[in-house]
Design a protein around this nucleic acid. Sequence first.
DNA 1: ACGATAATACGACTATAATAAAAATTTCGT
DNA 2: ACGAAATTTTTATTATAGTCGTATTATCGT
Lengths: 117, 117
Amino acid sequence: MQGAQVVAGLAALAHEHRLAVFRMLVVAGPDGIPAGVLAARLGVPPSSLTFHVQQLLHAGLVTQRRVGRQVFHAADFTAMNRLLAYLGENCCGGGQSCVPVCEPGATSQGLDGERVA
Amino acid sequence: MQGAQVVAGLAALAHEHRLAVFRMLVVAGPDGIPAGVLAARLGVPPSSLTFHVQQLLHAGLVTQRRVGRQVFHAADFTAMNRLLAYLGENCCGGGQSCVPVCEPGATSQGLDGERVA
DNA sequence: ACGATAATACGACTATAATAAAAATTTCGT
DNA sequence: ACGAAATTTTTATTATAGTCGTATTATCGT
């Protein structure tokens, strides 16, 4: 049952600061952003930032990588796609899913609005 | 769409019972499902069901309509689309959103009494 | 090695969410 | 009008989330 995983993901995003963090990371792309920068942008103390980031980590929505004494955070787009797909499942009444995947970093995206028939 | 509204929507969905309710309603389509049926399917007492449904209502994700002494609940697909669009915003690195809208077959035009479960 | 910087771990407090029994409300059938 | 059915309101209790100061760990520059 992946429903529990989806609930965890939604709960992780269901907070002002965490949603802001996640969107920053979505915009930032695979390179990510150091924890300190995230804390500064949000205006929260470091310990609070850690608390929130850990929820996102535990939900599998973000990844960490250490660079020197900084810890860069990046969005996990695969997890995000799973989340969106789950919510959109059956949304059009048929067996078809109307939520496409999202693939950042790769410039493979056409400008057409193609979708499954 | 404001971030606070999105947070409210995510928080509303970030619960086992509420997510289950919402998905049932997504599958059920515009006709919706009576509160009692939802409570029975979840195995929760009526007062608990009301509590959860109100979060979804307040978040604008579901609508209610009274039919006799039953209250039918239906998913608000417009709100759901807004939520998905917000999460997917900038997800492909460009200004383009890769999350399409969802338009279930509308059979909700009739204002007369509907069938009972 | 030492001092400074980046981040996490710990601890204490406050606020809000979740649960559900019991009472009240609305509507139906007869 | 009366009693049964569907749902909400009330009320109370318990559990968990959020906040942030301080302490601790890891890394860098000199």
